[in-house]
Design a protein around this nucleic acid. Structure first.
Lengths: 200, 200
DNA sequence: TCATACATACCGACCGGTCGGTATATACTT
DNA sequence: AAGTATATACCGACCGGTCGGTATGTATGA
């Protein structure tokens, strides 16, 4: 819609990925956008409203659309998933000098933070959580029927290994910022390895 | 050492587990401790110093001592690990009314937060990370030699599955606060299941 | 065509309140 | 008396947010 508004939102989105709600001050936001305080409050009711909008933007941009993945092959599914996720991560490119100061993009921090400001977010997260689990279970179930894999683990447990290891790696990227290229590499190596185990 | 000092530290520790550094205010701290501002600054140089001490307390109380676990059996190792971890989690009992307001103990938030205030913490975390990985790899290597497990996955990848799934579950506990008893149950179920897979 | 009227976009000084921190007074212990 | 422990009054910096004002259209009517 409005260009200036979009600009403010974009800058804010990036800031909130780097710092917490409290840490991002209006002064900083005004400085980084190059706009004035008056301009900001012309477009947004409050800092909190801005945070909410930035959050929605984040959630929608980061939530994978499982329907676009190949559901007939577990191998294809998790590879497409990894590629998709990596592409999203790279699209969160950051301009500004904040990167120098040791700050890292941290999706988890943002979510934790947002939960304090908007407790109702928890249900959304739970829902997304269950959708993801269901998608994985479906693919795994099919893969087992197809004979693609055979395993002692049940579908849900296999799904959880995929999902939880993904979190573990994502957290380490946020914590250690030795991200670079090996982000999705590490993930795929681990998943490939686990997949081979499932094939038996 | 000093009783009052210990008391302040304990209250602060619990607060920092629930809220971020910025969110915990001196006023709140003074109120929750039942002490006065003067008393506080008699024992601590600044809020930041308190945070640092609380953080050290947290790190040392939460870092597992791998040497006490049975290293001759992977099965024993991860079971002891889970029990140990569950015991630590339960020891972080929380007094106060903050629980009602939807706040959850969040170790990851604390660490992320601490990294901003004390960037040097990153090396400590990396070191701990490598220690943990080494401990797991050692046990897994032994288990493979003993014939306890046989798997296509290499030692490191197996270790990572254990470690990362643990993170995934821990994060979900923090996020969803449906913690209750199934905390370590979910973990052990998943690990047991994966272990069976490794046995083949 | 040009004066008027009104709306939108934007500015930055300023406000009340809260922050972490300090100065100082007081009570207790030895 | 002197040192320690605790309480209270207070400070300046900074916070999110407001407000009066300006610059720039843009539609209208004579």
């Amino acid at each position: 819609m409005n260009e200036t508004r979009e600009h403010i939102l974009k800058v804010a989105f990036n800031l909130f990925l780097l710092k917490s709600y409290k840490e991002v001050t209006m002064a900083e936001l005004v400085e980084k956008t190059g706009m004035s305080k008056g301009a900001f409050y012309h477009y947004f009711k409050s800092k909190e409203q801005l945070f909410l909008e930035a959050l929605k933007h984040c959630m929608s941009s980061i939530t994978p659309d499982f329907s676009i993945f190949d559901k007939n092959s577990l191998y294809e599914f998790y590879h497409q998933y990894a590629v998709y996720q990596n592409r999203i991560l790279n699209s969160l490119q950051l301009y500004g000098d904040d990167l120098d100061r040791g700050l890292t993009v941290n999706y988890y921090s943002l979510v934790f933070d947002a939960l304090k400001v908007f407790p109702s977010l928890r249900e959304k997260l739970l829902e997304h959580e269950q959708n993801e689990l269901k998608a994985w279970k479906g693919v795994i179930s099919t893969a087992r029927k197809n004979g693609e894999i055979r395993s002692f683990m049940n579908d849900e447990q296999i799904a959880k290994v995929f999902i939880y290891t993904n979190d573990g790696i994502a957290i380490r990227i946020s914590l250690m910022k030795d991200c670079s290229e090996d982000a999705s590499d590490t993930l795929l190596e681990l998943w490939d390895s686990f997949y081979m185990e499932l094939k038996g």
